[in-house]
């Protein structure tokens, strides 16, 4: 079970005209793994991730996500993944409950399922006091937790997170990572794209993209000892500066 790969990427390439945004990348991500997908802005992370979540068509190569081919079944992929971006997660002008109901509806849950999920989610996160408050009035930390939980409403096999904890206060950030660990422990794969290297430290394995290519792929621990440095930031600096 644990060794089952939910993302298999082989020589995936994306060209924009003459420009190769993603250059023959290959990697696998296991079920329940927290995988960090790192790179500077413009290194090709976003383009690669778009292909994996079924909204970008690769130029060549192979990729399977949640058991579906990105060329043939992008729609099936979308049903089996969750996505949470830092910029857009919840509607500020809807209440907590309305947001949950809305996203449940988008993911195709039945009305009864939505009702049950809403109740269990509110209980789990301890949101009883604020369930009818507008999301916009909540602190950032709360918003992120709720956003993460709504992205999990339809029990996706993989959840894609885009810079999930940048700018958040340290305690909230820890609480968020604890939620991620818990989710991963339940068998959901976590795919984190970020250019903040301290977020990378929390991942089971990380890949680092430079100019469209994956230049390193290992556990943070192994990467650090390989480059003889103390943190991922320095690993990145060594890689990027050549």
């Amino acid at each position: 079970m644990k060794n089952e790969s939910v993302i298999i990427v082989e020589s995936l390439t994306k060209m924009f005209g003459n420009f190769t945004a993603v250059d023959t990348i290959s990697f696998e991500v296991k079920k329940g793994e927290i995988f960090g997908f790192l790179g500077a802005n413009g290194a090709g992370k976003t383009t690669a991730m778009k292909m994996l979540i079924g909204i970008g068509k690769p130029t060549s190569g192979k990729a399977q996500v949640a058991g579906f081919d990105v060329f043939k079944n992008p729609e099936e992929i979308k049903k089996n993944i969750g996505y949470m971006s830092q910029k857009f997660a919840l509607y500020d002008d809807l209440t907590v409950k309305e947001n949950i109901t809305f996203f449940g509806g988008i993911y195709g849950l039945s009305r009864i399922q939505i009702k049950e999920k809403t109740i269990s989610l509110i209980e789990e996160l301890g949101l009883q006091e604020i369930e009818n408050k507008l999301v916009g009035s909540l602190p950032l930390g709360w918003k992120q937790k709720i956003a993460f939980s709504t992205a999990l409403l339809h029990n996706p096999k993989i959840i894609f997170l885009d810079e999930p904890t940048s700018g958040v206060d340290p305690i909230t950030r820890r609480q968020f990572w604890e939620m991620i660990y818990k989710t991963a422990n339940n068998g959901t794969t976590i795919f984190v794209t970020t250019h903040y290297m301290d977020e990378a430290e929390y991942c089971d394995r990380v890949s680092i993209m430079v100019n469209g290519k994956i230049e390193a792929l290992d556990t943070p621990k192994n990467l650090k000892s390989q480059f003889q440095v103390h943190n991922m930031n320095d690993v990145f600096l060594k890689l990027a500066r050549g």
Binding site: I171, R174, W177, E178, Y181, K182, A184, N185, D198, E201, Y202, T219, P220, K221, N231, M232
Partner: peptide, 24 residues
């Protein structure tokens, strides 16, 4: 080996003062 369970165990250790994930 299991980060999630490690945090759970540490939090249920009766003498713990603080438990925070910190990178690896």
């Amino acid at each position: 080996d299991n980060m999630y369970k490690l945090i759970e165990s540490l939090k249920s250790f009766k003498h713990h003062y603080s438990v925070y994930p910190f990178g690896e």
